[in-house]
Simulated scan of single mutants.
Amino acid sequence: MAGEFGTRFMDQMAVSHFSDGWSQEEMVPGDSITLHPGAHVLHYASTCFEGLKAFRQADGGVAIFRMDKNVARFAQSSSLLYLPEIDTEQTSRMISDIVAHYRDAIPAPPASMYIRPTHIGTEAAIGKAAAPSATSTQMILLSPVGDYFAGGEACLRLLLDDKGVRCGPDHGMVKGGGNYASALKHIMRARASVKADQVLFCPGGDVQETGAANFILVDGDRIITKSLDESFLHGVTRDSLLTLARDKGLDVQERELTIEELIECAAHPECEAGLTGTAAVVAAVGTLIHDGQEYKVGSGTPGPRIRAMRDELNAIQWGQSEDRHNWLTRV
């Protein structure tokens, strides 16, 4: 898996176009699309996407992890951007069919096949800044990816930002390009100023999420994370990890978490924190930075609880342990 994450693609992709209705899906070359320069997406950010993975199973088969949940979120993002309503059955079929087409190219764990459904507004209409695109295209890209931790286990530095916001507070549920673009300036400034890996957005002191991942705090048998609302992305990996934690009887608390409580908990020797997402499952956080001060999270190194959470979910994804919640779709 040479190259950076997500920079290698399969030579074909699945596409479907919306005009008066959705066209029959087809396989086309995966290295280009044709758009009018006035396409709505290029001017008004009418774009959303998903990120999920297909895994080689212990028995040699192939399975997609939580496709139904990702497709439902894809439909939700499309709706919140007022893009044409996707046909979830068609989208699921497109994902399954292209994964099946490339099943022999899906690498063995810990590598996987990353799946990127994308929906863009295509209407040539630069006068529609305050109106949605009437036409659109959805496409399914595949990218074989290696082990996220091949270069060594992550131990991230987070800048706690209580002034900036990742996106509009009523727009965080959208997995759209505009939300990532608006977070980028904060991330770049944090890297330049304090060598942070990511920014943990905490508007008004309320701990939310980073520019690309949900945040969890693990303090003994407690797992604390922000309760779901419109302000941040409802992560599929987050949901999966919390479900497994509840299965084990852990104290999962979805509630408000302030910067003050976070820093206080971080001082506990056994405290751990992590960022959850499709790429890494959960990556450890070792340092918090706030108001010019640095605070270690627990020992400041990756801890056993975060590692165990990642291992447990990986085992399900790789077909090495029981899929009790029917999260895997075999193809």
Rank of each mutant, 00 (worst) to 15 (best):
R238M: 12
L228T: 12
V236R: 01
E254K: 09
T210W: 03
L200I: 08
L228G: 04
D206K: 14
E230K: 13
G249Y: 07
D197E: 12
E230G: 07
V207C: 13
K248W: 05
D247Y: 05
L233C: 02
T225G: 07
P203A: 11
E230C: 07
K226M: 09
V252K: 03
S227T: 03
V218Q: 02
D221K: 13
F232C: 03
D219E: 10
S231H: 03
S231C: 06
T210K: 08
L228P: 00
A245T: 05
A213C: 12
E254S: 11
A245W: 02
R246C: 13
G204V: 12
K226V: 07
E254W: 08
G205E: 12
N214L: 11
D239T: 14
F201Q: 00
L200S: 15
F201T: 03
D206T: 10
T210C: 14
D197P: 12
A212S: 15
D239I: 03
D219C: 12
P203L: 10
P203Y: 08
L250S: 05
F215W: 13
Q253E: 15
D197K: 02
V252P: 11
R246D: 13
D247E: 15
V218F: 07
G249R: 10
G204D: 14
G220M: 09
E209Y: 04
D239L: 04
L242N: 01
E209R: 04
L200P: 14
G211E: 05
D206H: 13
V199M: 08
F232D: 01
D197W: 04
K248N: 14
D197C: 07
A212P: 03
C202K: 02
D197N: 15
G235T: 07
D229Q: 11
T225F: 03
I224F: 01
V199T: 13
A245G: 13
F215A: 00
D229K: 07
Q198I: 03
T243I: 05
R255Y: 08
G220C: 12
T237E: 03
F232T: 00
I216T: 07
D206S: 09
E209G: 06
G204I: 10
G211V: 10
V199I: 09
K248C: 11
F201I: 08
S240R: 02
G249F: 08
L244C: 10
D251G: 08
V218E: 01
G211K: 03
G211N: 12
K226P: 00
E254C: 09
T243V: 09
L244T: 04
F215L: 07
H234Q: 15
L241W: 01
S240I: 02
H234K: 13
L217I: 08
L217N: 01
T210E: 09
D247V: 06
S227A: 15
D251R: 12
I216A: 06
R246N: 14
L228A: 14
A245I: 04
R246E: 15
E254L: 09
Q198S: 10
E230F: 09
R246W: 06
A245R: 00
Q198Y: 09
S240Q: 06
V199H: 02
F232I: 12
T243R: 15
S231F: 01
D197Q: 06
V199R: 00
S227P: 08
E209H: 05
T237Q: 06
L233T: 00
Q208P: 02
A213V: 02
